[in-house]
């Protein structure tokens, strides 16, 4: 089971959380103005990376709030979690190597 750091509550067990998929996917401001292709990209297409992923979690059995995390999907190690609304952080190579270990 993963140990996940809620930015508001601290380290808690994975069973307190719900994963909510890839982060930083922006809904087109005017859905009628985009092509079907762009709309499908927004709704369904995903990077699904093998390596660092930016993903959303919700502390559903805790404070109830959403936040984002950077995790390496080859090891399931977290690099960091951060509050909703912040841009995707750049990860230095040392931290990335640590997560890949």
């Amino acid at each position: 089971m993963l140990l996940i750091r809620c930015p508001y509550c601290g380290d808690r067990a994975e069973i307190e959380y719900a994963n909510a998929g890839e982060a930083h996917i922006v809904r087109p401001a005017d859905p009628m103005a985009v092509s079907d292709e762009e709309w499908a990209q927004y709704l369904y297409m995903r990077d699904n990376p093998k390596g660092l992923i930016a993903e959303r979690w919700r502390h559903s059995h805790g404070c109830g709030r959403f936040f984002n995390a950077i995790r390496d999907t080859r090891t399931d190690r977290f690099v960091m979690t951060y509050e909703m609304g912040q841009p995707r952080p750049t990860i230095d190579s040392e931290a990335a190597a640590e997560a890949a270990r």
């Binding site: 994963n19 990376p49 399931d76």
Partner: peptide, 13 residues
């Protein structure tokens, strides 16, 4: 398991 992973393992729960 609920999250994206390539580890071929998951949580015991």
């Amino acid at each position: 398991d609920s999250y994206v992973s390539y580890t071929q393992r998951g949580g015991l729960h």
